[in-house]
Design a protein around this nucleic acid. Structure first.
Lengths: 118, 118
DNA sequence: CATGTTGTGTAGTATATACTACACACTCCA
DNA sequence: TGGAGTGTGTAGTATATACTACACAACATG
């Protein structure tokens, strides 16, 4: 079961509390350029999550992290895929190696890279 | 243009030189559980690369790296996708950060992780 | 009490993905 | 010289993906 629908419904309803007119299902659907009934079905899990473009539009409208939303939909952002595909062995090895590492350890790597410890 | 077809044709012909009977198009197709005509078309780029399962079968038969072959087909292995999807922000940040880093730098990270420099 | 706005139900469609089935021509070689 | 094996051409199919179009009932609100 993809939690995608539940997640965006919760998020939308939360936003709707503060600005009811801006976050009705119809408004959000319109912003994301899809039919309201389609969004309704997605939110209730009657339809699988939409395509990458629509997910990104929804992430924008709902001010959510695009990578998190894609993950909930069982996808990986195209830009990440392309980075991996340019050096598949390298990234495959690294990612598999990091699979069971605690967040802290991975974050340390990120910081190391960012600070340019070379 | 996906280089996938050209790549596996070259690889197969190379293997065919040494063991002609084991690496005919038909034999390879049979091992990979697809129709010869389909493989023929894939090799000549008349069909897009096959699905993940078939690519993995071909990688096995041709003794090639599965991640490299998937990359040539514009895909990313499902197991890698799942690792990313479990901690999307973390991995997205890391991968984007490593995008333009030289191989050496990334390899150093891999070694660091493997050797458990914590 | 009519009008607008809410979410939802039904019934589709277009396009892509991932193939199969089978006939054909050519070459090798016993 | 005919039978096995080579690759290829044509013509499909099944299933999944990613949606649209429109009608409808419930609610509120002016």
């Amino acid at each position: 079961m993809s939690q995608f629908g539940e997640y965006i419904r919760n998020r939308r309803e939360e936003l709707q509390k503060n600005s009811p007119s801006m976050f009705s299902l119809r408004k959000v659907a319109q912003e994301a350029d899809i039919e309201p009934s389609y969004l309704s079905k997605i939110e209730r899990g009657l339809q699988p999550p939409p395509g990458q473009t629509t997910i990104e539009a929804l992430a924008r409208v709902l001010d959510e992290d695009k990578d998190v939303m894609l993950a909930l939909a069982g996808k990986v952002s195209d830009d990440l895929s392309k980075i991996i595909q340019k050096r598949p062995k390298l990234f495959a090895t690294l990612i598999r190696e990091l699979k069971d590492m605690p967040d802290k350890a991975v974050l340390r790597l990120v910081r190391e890279v960012r600070d340019g410890e070379w």
